[in-house]
């Protein structure tokens, strides 16, 4: 009696899992929100695949992290532009997938050494980047092997929104076989797997695309304040497609999308009429803020 019940529930589960896997979103692509970029990518990043993000230099790790996180968030959100390129997206299913998948968990496997070198993940910062921290599952692994194991385990779980794998340097287990395994797991589960590489040279892998990310000066806000996160992207490799192209994009947190920014056109997106950022006011009036009469005497400290 109980055995038949469990068989029945197993069948039900596998059916609904298959339905989740075979949906239009799973088969589709992750549009980045930048038309020029999506066109080169044939409509966006393949969802059920492995993608690599390299930091151009160690100091660009934060930028690479931001870009990879942006991709993971794009994977979670349904894109209004995606429909234009992918024919599978039926109009009815889009709203459903937006509600369903935008709240899926994102698993981040991180090597301890990255924490020491580049700082720990800061939940309020993730929140301000657009990721609700309660959606994040963080696995801290001691070494590259642990990161790979956690990543591979997670890549098989079709209920995740995206998997981020962040080792440091070039641990031995990250070879071609390992990347093939990750790519196969991603294909089977339909979960995008993003491999974030820092302090590593390019090596042959089974990744569908490979990106190099460099920090880019942001569009200044009022009073020369740093603006939204901006990245200089370089598509190093795309299987069966054009590669070696560069873009300059910034992350639009409010709309969960990337936007292209032109280097020469500083007034880009002025139609948006963003209210200008105010200088922050100190919490207590102990030290006075230098008002207009900017004192230009410089002093060395520290």
């Amino acid at each position: 009696m109980s055995e038949t019940a469990s068989t029945l529930s197993d069948l039900r589960r596998s059916l609904s899992e298959a339905a989740l896997r075979g949906g239009p979103v799973a088969a589709g692509r992750i549009g980045l929100g930048v038309p020029a970029l999506d066109e080169v990518l044939n409509g966006g990043l393949a969802r059920a695949a492995l993608h690599e993000v390299y930091a151009a230099e160690v100091a660009d790790l934060a930028a690479a992290t931001g870009f990879a996180l942006g991709l993971a968030l794009r994977a979670g959100a349904a894109d209004e532009k995606a429909g234009a390129f992918s024919s599978e997206a039926a109009p009815g299913s889009r709203e459903e997938t937006r509600n369903g998948s935008s709240e899926r968990s994102i698993l981040w496997a991180r090597q301890d050494f990255v924490d020491a070198e580049a700082g720990r993940l800061h939940a309020p910062g993730l929140n301000e980047f657009g990721l609700d921290p309660s959606r994040l599952l963080l696995v801290r692994a001691r070494d590259g092997e642990g990161v790979l194991r956690a990543g591979a385990e997670a890549a098989r779980c079709s209920a995740l929104g995206a998997v981020l794998i962040e080792p440091w340097g070039e641990p031995r287990p990250f070879d071609l076989t390992a990347s093939r395994r990750l790519a196969l797991a991603a294909e089977a589960s339909g979960v995008p797997v993003l491999l974030l590489r820092v302090a590593a040279t390019e090596a042959p892998s089974a990744a569908r695309t490979r990106w190099q990310v460099r920090a880019l000066a942001s569009r200044a806000l009022e009073a020369n304040a740093p603006g939204a996160p901006a990245f200089a992207l370089r598509l190093l490799r795309q299987r069966g497609g054009v590669a070696e192209r560069e873009w300059r994009v910034e992350w639009d947190r409010d709309r969960h999308r990337f936007a292209e920014c032109s280097l020469f056109d500083r007034s880009f997106r002025t139609d948006h009429a963003a209210p200008l950022s105010r200088p922050l006011v100190p919490l207590s009036g102990d030290g006075q803020i230098a008002a207009d009469g900017r004192d230009t005497r410089l002093r060395r400290a520290g």
Partner: peptide, 16 residues
């Protein structure tokens, strides 16, 4: 988590 203020850049870092 409190929703971030719209149209503002992140005021807290990703990594600490």
């Amino acid at each position: 988590w409190s929703a971030p203020e719209p149209q503002e850049p992140p005021t807290r870092p990703l990594q600490l």
